[in-house]
Simulated scan of single mutants.
Amino acid sequence: MFDIGFWEILVIGVLALLILGPERLPGAMRSTFYTIRSVRNAASGFKQEVEHQLRVHELHENLKKAEQKGLNDMSPELKKSVDELKDAAESVREPYKKK
């Protein structure tokens, strides 16, 4: 990600020790690591959401293609997409079925 070598990290550490002092340095490091972790988690969540939305869009496009072909003469990947959508729709309806 960043091209930071050993000497750059050492210089940053020495400067942080001189500026913050030994009392506040551990707390600052913890705070920095917590912030980095939360930014990474947010980026990961955003990435997963975008991938999910792209997959949904792809399934919708495949469903449109399948509907245009009349749901009869479909390629295997279109049939798989339609089956996935049917399964998803059935799983959503399942909790709302009357017993």
Rank of each mutant, 00 (worst) to 15 (best):
L54V: 04
E51I: 13
N72A: 10
V56K: 12
G5T: 13
A43I: 06
K64S: 15
E23M: 05
G13Q: 05
S91P: 00
L18D: 04
L18E: 06
V82S: 07
E94A: 14
S44L: 11
E94L: 12
E58N: 14
A42M: 03
K47R: 12
Y34H: 06
N72C: 05
H57R: 13
V82M: 07
V92D: 14
V92W: 14
H57F: 06
F46M: 15
R24W: 08
L10V: 09
P26D: 02
K64P: 00
H57D: 13
L10I: 12
A88L: 11
E51F: 13
D73Y: 05
E84R: 11
D83A: 15
P22Q: 03
L18F: 06
M1K: 09
M1Y: 10
L20M: 08
D3L: 02
K97I: 11
T32C: 01
Q68G: 13
A88T: 09
L17G: 13
K80E: 15
A42I: 05
A66G: 08
M74W: 06
V92C: 12
H60E: 14
L85R: 01
R30S: 05
I36N: 01
D87H: 14
G5W: 05
S91H: 09
L59A: 07
L85D: 00
R55S: 10
F46T: 13
F33H: 05
K64F: 14
K64M: 13
T35W: 02
